[in-house]
Design a protein around this nucleic acid. Structure first.
Length: 271
DNA sequence: CGAGCAACCTGCATGC
DNA sequence: TGCATGCAGGTTGCTC
């Protein structure tokens, strides 16, 4: 699934294709997503024009004249722009149909994603209420992360994956950032020095920026909107590399579970 | 309150 | 070949 770089890649690919398109109707074939897709609400978008395609955390926002459609890709969601008469495939749950005969087609095998209507002011939407800062903005800096971590007994990895700490850092990029920063994923967040947080914040930003520039990470089922894979997969240093040699010191990488998520790291380079 | 864990779902790889 | 098991890029809601 998509972490922030994959969602941002999707946004950038989609934006030129659907900005300024007028929505004709929204077709819901399968409403049972993380939150139910309500056709009557989604069709309030009908005859409105898409002004902009935005992103907050891992949510995409199709900004309309009044209101927005919020989309989350969950673990397995995809968006494609296709002709409206393209035959429907398995798990093609929702079509946002445009007046030009094309549609934005949402496919999500595991149905952890969502497509919902919102016409409240953005900050008030319940989905966004408890989100931390965007990792690529100045609001996310070492001062912030250090202060936020004080008295936290939680391990650093689940701490930076928590959307209330910072948004968009998922299981791949948390592992990669911690490796680059030389921090053991098990280390207590509250017992990490300010100077180490300076390094960590820098690495989180670098890793995410680089992944965005390469079009995200394609593991099995993520593709950019033009059908090409994301090329960050070949940059992965620890994710999915259990028992393979560390790229820095050759020690076989260890794999543990933290907060229920697989975590690979180097016991020598990460302290 | 923080922290850990199960649950939500389907598809795929693995092992018997 | 079939079947059971475990795992997957996220988020939330329930426990303690």
């Amino acid at each position: 699934m998509p972490e922030l770089p994959e969602v941002e890649t999707t946004r950038r690919g989609l934006s030129p294709l659907i900005s300024h398109q007028t929505i004709k109707q929204v077709v819901v074939r399968e409403a049972r997503l993380r939150q139910p897709a309500v056709p009557e609400q989604l069709n309030l978008a009908a005859s409105q024009r898409i002004q902009q395609v935005n992103r907050r955390a891992k949510y995409l926002q199709l900004q309309l004249q009044s209101g927005e459609i919020i989309i989350h890709l969950g673990m397995s969601g995809h968006l494609r722009v296709v002709s409206q008469d393209t035959p429907v495939k398995k798990h093609d749950h929702i079509d946002i149909v445009f007046t030009n005969g094309q549609c934005l087609r949402f496919n999500d095998p595991r149905r952890f994603g969502l497509v919902v209507w919102n016409d409240l002011p953005l900050a008030e939407h319940v989905l966004f209420q408890h989100l931390g800062p965007e990792p690529l903005t100045d609001a996310f800096d070492s001062e912030y992360l250090y202060q936020k971590s004080r008295k936290r007994r939680q391990s650093i990895k689940p701490f930076i994956m928590d959307n209330q700490t910072v948004v968009g850092v998922g299981n791949i990029y948390a592992q990669e950032s911690l490796f680059k920063a030389g921090i053991n994923p098990k280390r207590e967040a509250g017992r990490i020095s300010f100077s180490r947080y300076q390094v960590l914040v820098r690495e989180i930003k670098h890793v995410l920026e680089k992944a965005i520039n390469l079009g995200g990470t394609s593991l099995k089922d993520f593709y950019q909107t033009d059908g090409k894979p994301g090329y960050f997969a070949q940059e992965l240093l620890v994710y999915g590399r259990e028992s393979l040699p560390c790229t820095h010191c050759e020690t076989p990488l260890k794999a543990i579970k933290l907060g229920g998520r697989a975590s690979t790291y180097c016991g020598t380079c990460q302290r």
